[in-house]
Design a protein around this nucleic acid. Structure first.
Lengths: 122, 122, 122, 122
DNA sequence: GTGGTCTAGACCACA
DNA sequence: GTGGTCTAGACCACG
């Protein structure tokens, strides 16, 4: 992996999102160990301080815990993960609705179109 | 306006999308004149060649016509605009579904969630 | 081969024509690989961007397909090639008629003269 | 008029052709006076020596005569003009046939196609 | 290696 | 002024 970040969000928040998505997808199972700050920094092509900040934020969010001398570990906390999932979901839906409005699709149409799209792939 | 583009799509395609959206929204009425290549380049903070390419693509799509020494003009063609709107819509929906799947929202859930979001704003 | 282009047509269109003619003549069989953008640029004595543009146009015409990191390949499509041949032919005939008119040869005379020329070579 | 010459033929020969065509088309009637070497040089955007050479060639061809202190005049000589017309015509036809062969049009087809083209414009 | 995109800056034709 | 073409050189993603 290398540098590929949106300009809008701070990089460290994008890394937070990425780690959370990895956990939600099961790429990072709990209570598994995350890559070290240094390894992650190389992997993401950013400064170790940025990773440090991301891990700090994840700890503040109660998603991971750091154990002195051992590393950073995913916390088993399904309720919290569910909350995070919901807020990510809300963000995605909002963005989606905005884009649809932007090209002039009325709200009543949106549901219909999503239905069509999903049923087409059956 | 200044530099603010996604990293995924080529800039010239993002400009194409933008112009199409402006037309769909009536910001660019037909047969109105688009900003000149040079003006648009300044406005968007990109190289004139990039605008040239975008305008060329729009001409190829039959959305605008260019008149040598005069400028680039929107073509009246509602049927075509409707087609383009549909394909933009499809692209947006597909992107939306992908993102939702990525965070682990099942397809049956997606409809429900969109419903909830839309009804909340009433 | 080196720089030797007409001044009237854009160079990239002349390259497009040349590639099409090579395919029609069987110099470029399908699905053969065209020279890389850089090699072709050296061969034709032009800038790689000009070749890129020509290959892009050929792809838009469905004459070739490009595979990222692999190269540009001729597509098997005899019907399309026949269409292109017809439009090239029309262009050549129109140019011919214009030149003949320019030196004052009447249309009824043109047929006769072409006949004479062809029969002379028997 | 300005610089616009093919790369294949010497510029002075292209000017010779141009003058002959002008005469054939009646733009230069005989026994009219041609522009002075200096004027023609400016008009064609070339060095006066090049025009001088072209006029010399035209004189050698017996198409014009130069009268000391008066200028260069078209010679009334219909037979010669007819000859020149024929050789120009031959050149054009040969070029035409070559191009048609190049894209794979058989000689028997050529006549048919020219017919089609001419009758279409009726 | 491949093709694809972008910038910087030039020159052209047309009006 | 306008759009259209071309060069030179850079960086990117993909394989």
């Amino acid at each position: 992996m290398s540098k590929e970040f949106q300009s809008s969000k701070p990089i460290y928040m994008q890394i937070v999102d990425q780690v959370v998505i990895d956990i939600l997808q099961g790429k990072q199972k709990s209570p598994e160990k995350l890559p070290s700050v240094r390894d992650m920094a190389v992997k993401m092509g950013v400064n170790p301080n940025t990773i440090q900040r991301a891990y700090g934020e994840l700890e503040r969010m109660n998603v991971v815990e750091t154990r002195r001398g051992q590393g950073t570990f995913v916390i088993e906390n399904n309720a919290l993960l569910e909350d995070i999932k919901l807020s990510l979901q809300e963000e995605i839906i909002e963005d989606f609705i905005n884009k649809m409005n932007k090209i002039g699709v009325k709200q009543t149409e949106i549901i219909t179109q999503v239905h069509h799209f999903l049923n087409r792939g059956i």
